[in-house]
């Protein structure tokens, strides 16, 4: 299978990418590592007229300790995030999640920013970042803005990004020394999560994020509220699926996803010491 025809534009820097987006507008699609986009294009579920390839925009591939905040360039690959000493120190949950994306080949190519911008609700990276309370730096002709992970995705594969905007950086407040948990349920190792749960403790508070329990990654609000009022892991986890609308597909029914959300939340909380 091959993608429908398109024009290829190489953009090896933010400026080049911004210029290309400015020229081609909403006909263009950004290609980062391509591990989500190219399969869709091969199946012709995505047929952009112009592909702007930013996979080698080196100015957007970095991990920096910005004094209490971990700054990660959007085009940093999963494998580089997974083995980064800074990420492992400040956000071990993210390092772990990056190490469980797809398979080694996908992690050698796919980028964390690409994953966030693709906004698949079953993806590891946005789930971990939601639990970590990350924010996303978005830049476009109108300037730079910072969007919280909770506000970024607006629906299945949809985000607040305007056609001429780029996600340039992911900012994660350091969670050094804090407990965390990540539970991912799949049929096979390579599969997208049937359901996944990320738990991040920070100070006295606990964040719980759910993958594949709706059209976007979600916070398990009822569980978080129960924990805040002093409930134990098992009791709090029993509320994990409240307010969610999981889909049914070939992998699992909605009912089973709800069940998994509760079980996995309990386990992730236990792993995080709750």
């Amino acid at each position: 299978m091959i993608p429908a025809p398109f024009d290829y534009v190489r953009a090896d820097s933010y400026d080049a990418a911004a210029a290309a987006l400015g020229e081609h507008g909403d006909e263009a699609k950004l290609l980062a590592g391509g591990q989500s986009l190219l399969p869709l294009m091969k199946l012709r579920l995505a047929t952009p007229a112009v592909v702007v390839d930013v996979s080698r925009a080196r100015d957007l591939a970095y991990v920096r300790d910005d004094g209490g905040v971990l700054a990660i360039g959007a085009l940093t690959r999963h494998c580089d995030v997974a083995r980064s000493a800074d990420v492992t120190a400040h956000a071990p949950l993210l390092a772990h999640a990056a190490g469980s994306v797809g398979d080694p080949q996908v992690r050698h190519r796919g980028t964390v920013g690409g994953s966030v911008a693709h906004a698949d609700p079953s993806a590891d990276i946005p789930t971990a970042l939601l639990a970590l309370g990350a924010s996303y730096v978005v830049r476009g002709p109108g300037g730079t803005r910072e969007v919280s992970a909770a506000d970024f995705s607006t629906g299945f594969l949809e985000t607040v990004l305007a056609p001429d905007e780029l996600l340039v950086e992911i900012r994660v407040p350091s969670a050094r020394g804090e407990a965390w948990g990540y539970e991912k349920f799949t049929r096979r190792a390579i599969d997208w999560a049937t359901v996944a749960v990320a738990v991040q403790k920070r100070g006295g508070e606990t964040s719980v994020a759910l993958a594949n329990m709706g059209s976007t990654v979600l916070r398990a609000a009822a569980t978080e509220a129960a924990l805040a009022s002093g409930a134990g892991a098992a009791d709090a986890a029993a509320h994990a699926d409240e307010g969610t609308e999981p889909a049914a597909d070939v992998t699992a029914s909605a009912e089973f996803r709800r069940h998994l959300a509760r079980v996995l939340t309990k386990r992730a909380l236990v792993a995080a010491g709750r």
């Binding site: 399969p39 199946l43 096979r188 190792a189 599969d191």
Partner: peptide, 24 residues
Amino acid sequence: VRYDEDGNPQSTNLADYAFPSAAE
């Protein structure tokens, strides 16, 4: 291999069809 009630196949590629790898 599953079909829905209208005869639409539900597992037409190796992402949907759970062919196991070494990890399983």
